[in-house]
Design a protein around this nucleic acid. Sequence first.
DNA 1: GAAAACGTTGGCTGG
DNA 2: CCCAGCCAACGTTTT
Length: 630
Amino acid sequence: MEKPRVLYWFRTDLRLHDSPALKAALDLDPAVLWPIFTWDPHYVYRSKVGVNRWQYLLDCQNDLSDSIKKLNPKSKLFVVREAPQTVLLKLFWAWKVTHLVFERDTDTYARERDRVVVESARKAGVEVVTRYGRTLWDIDDVVAKHGGKPTMSITQLQAAGNKVGAIPKPIPSPKHLPDPGEMPVDFEHDRPDTERDLNAPLRSKTDKTYNSVAGPKGDFAIETLEELGFSAATTPHRGGETIALEKLAQIIADQEYTATFQKPKTNPTAFEPQATTLLSPLLHFGALSPRLFYWRVQEVVEKYGKNASHPPESLTGQLLFRDMYFAAQAAIGSPFPQALNNAHVRFIPWHLPSKVDDGTETGTNAISGEYHIDSPQAEKWFQRWKFGVTGFPFVDALMRQLRVEGWIHHLGRHMVACFLTRGGCYVHWERGADVFEELLIDHEVACNAGNWQWLSCTAFYSQYYRCYSPVAFGQKWDKNGDFIRKWVPELKDMDAKFIYEPWKASKSALDKAGVKIEGDGLGGGMEQGTSTYPGPMFDFGERRSACIAAMKTAYSIGLHGNDERVRNSTWKELFENAGETEMEAVHGSDDDGHGAPLEKGKNGGKHGRTKSDAVKEGPMDRHVKKLKAP
DNA sequence: GAAAACGTTGGCTGG
DNA sequence: CCCAGCCAACGTTTT
């Protein structure tokens, strides 16, 4: 009996430590083993990936490749430049593969992709071996123990997880790796359709990723940013398993930090160093095993004794939330990252709703990433949010940090997400999720979509009256505004009294700080090196009231994403009858938004106190932080 | 069945 | 400085 010839397919597990799938591959006692990564067009062209996340992925790939080379100088991470759905079958034949081994992935696209690959393996007589190690528990087991339903709270996740059993203990890294076999590529190369390249606007040069299966030098080298058509990354954060294990060791070494970590008490304005671990991008690419992280923390917690923090606030609690979102996504499937057709997501008539993609690429009316500009005002607010020129310094600081670093603190994400959706702009959470998808180095579909649903109060969370203030929330941690001074240098000399709301500063205070409050920030004033900073794009207190009232109306109507009336647009009548005019308070009827604009004062309706009433009364004014007179 | 408690992490005032 | 209590009030789970 000949020894197995194993193709090990790395995907979201770019590490050697604690890899159940890699262990299974080595347990086959292979004659040869090829560690490969397939360069998937779904990621390269059909997902938005900003330059910082590309850099982070390349870091992880290069570090893994170096580690493989240390175990066996003849081997490395071989990058195969073709869609796995087509290329793996060709490799099965050309390389005489007997076994394909990979770690399972419960993301919607990955499941479908893997189904195709497994089918092609069956045709080629290749045995497929899979294991799972991407989350604490096997997510399919969690869903099964939860009756096939999505886990919509942390208690549900914990209950289902406990039924699955103990979280597996980490597996050591392998001590050796077999040689790779021969790698002929004398087969036809399928190139992907690049006509619809979501990343085209982000590339400064044409991408050459797919010129040949084995890359420009024919050596299966890891691609470079330049090859992808990107200019240099701006993030200071670097990826890779080596860094992951070092960072974890540093965190664990601080036993008090590890054992008493309470997420709500960590400071979103802290920088150099930030208040949380920054392990999320490493978990995303699999450079760090969540189970290793869990058990290392757990050892410290147990040793620390009764003063340790507990889930959900603790460090391990953060990992539980990750499992919760993965399990929710696994149960809901393709509608998970969108509102449409999603029975678990509340319907709110947000501005800038997604266009529906009737194409067949993903089926089931998946959103296309494009959106309707139902309100020019909301579109402008969205653009100003996206580029960090809202005129609210704390929001702008966070959005600029996000663009440069690809990372902001979790509570900072809460702030800007609440502001864009239910607590300010009333823009669809899918727009915000799109921007985060492009800019975050730790972007995880399940966690991103789930958290946007949470913050917009459309799923997981419903206390929409708890609203983050762009002034008070940051001041809670950073009275002096150092975080703003770093990211919004126009305001670096501003008096601390006004740095969160510079529009309230007197002319002399502004002159002293060298600041001019002017324009909408979109005209490029910043690039000219002036200290012009835009005024606030709306009255926050007014918008907060209008949004809360509109949310109340939407909640009382009670539609969800799978409702027939959502799909056929008859929902509009319901909202018209209820007086849904969230924009009215701002600028009357120049918005062609949801339903016919109503005249002020005609929206009494059956829902009693409407947002117009609330705005006229102005009872929420006290929620806008008023500074004491100097 | 009704009421209370709970739910990852709000803001503000007054003591 | 910290904290309790209020605001106006959601859905779900527990009692």
